[in-house]
Design a protein around this nucleic acid. Structure first.
Lengths: 199, 199
DNA sequence: AGACTTATTTTACAGTGTGTAAGATAATGA
DNA sequence: TCATTATCTTACACACTGTAAAATAAGTCT
């Protein structure tokens, strides 16, 4: 396949959308173990052979879909780039943006992130969040609580990034009972120590 | 099979150990997608038919192994039962006990928890930890920071339990660079607000 | 519009794994 | 020693995989 036409040929676009939709549908209906190229092709109303023209196998498909997901999340967060000098308020807005994006595509994220059927999606998002949190840690937390309390940077990063992704997953699993704005604010309260001075 | 003899017949015990060891070995070598009953039986030096005498299929095997894991963790934590009146110090000891148990069986937990190849194990442990944290929250945190700051109980529980399991997973993934004692203490510092008064 | 390029389809094939059945063998326990 | 039963051997029908070749259909370009 011509790598340039890949992204523009309407037949290719159509097929990939059909595969993605079929995959999401099937994943809501069954466990990942029962997923097969045959089933996906059948549901997508394409030939099984066509699947192999796009993906080597199912793991390859998952990987490429995860790549796409990360790209879309980065796209959604654009406009509020990672700013080393930003204060917590700015990051809180970025989290709200992330949650809004997830809420807008809830049917996709509920299956890929919240179902835990295909760990690769959660893994990718965790990596991304870990990067952001690691960067942020050096720049804006030099004088924060954790810094002073003698907490190892890597442990603090593990703690924060997993708390973040875990909270998002739980929120999705329970069908988003809070608005992105409210949850982002609560998360900010839980993570930052700013509020300590109020009590 | 006689359900009573199931647990005592040395042939049964031997076979299940062989299957478990073969499974762990194979999972370190390949992705879960490539796992098959044939491979497990071959590695375990048992007949493929024998596998089906113990487990319906691979998902069934994973489920039963996860049950076993939870039992063993509960066993390891016994002696320090969930005490509603316990102060943070006691819980900190329980976390240290958990980490010690995991460290002692690192080869098993590195594959089941840290590899993220079989999400069921992480899911089960998360459920267990969520239960413990939920119970604890009502009893010992009535006057804690989160309570006063107007943070929803469920959000706080999501945050804490996912931070806990995520930290454990990251610690395992990086081959446990800290002692259980040290990590438990750091986790305690990160979660509790007691230290705030020191600064 | 017509000629091209190429994505998709159809059909076919060899290979691997699944889950179950029957009877033979070997280990266990009383 | 003898009855029990876990394991093994062999066999079978079925499903899914990954690839190939040639035909068809859809898109692109002048």
């Amino acid at each position: 396949m011509n790598p340039n036409k890949d992204q523009t040929d309407p037949r290719v676009i159509r097929t990939r959308i059909l595969i993605k939709e079929a995959f999401i549908e099937l994943l809501t209906e069954m466990d990942i173990e029962k997923m097969s190229v045959s089933r996906i092709a059948e549901r997508a109303t394409i030939s099984r052979v066509t699947f192999y023209l796009h993906y080597r196998d199912i793991p390859d498909m998952l990987e490429k879909m995860a790549d796409e997901m990360i790209k879309e999340i980065e796209e959604a967060l654009r406009g509020k780039p990672v700013n080393p000098d930003s204060r917590e308020g700015a990051d809180w807005l970025r989290l709200e943006k992330l949650l809004e994006h997830i809420a807008q595509h809830a049917s996709f994220y509920k299956v890929t992130l919240a179902s835990r059927k295909a760990p690769i999606f959660t893994e990718r998002l965790l990596s991304m969040l870990t990067e952001i949190i690691t960067e942020r840690y050096d720049h804006v937390e030099k004088d924060s609580f954790t810094y002073k309390a003698g907490i190892q940077k890597d442990i603090a990063v593990w703690h924060r990034s997993s708390a973040l992704i875990g909270t998002i997953v739980s929120w999705l699993r329970q069908d988003m009972p809070y608005t992105p704005h409210f949850l982002a604010k609560q998360f900010y309260l839980l993570t930052s120590r700013k509020q300590d001075t109020n009590f």
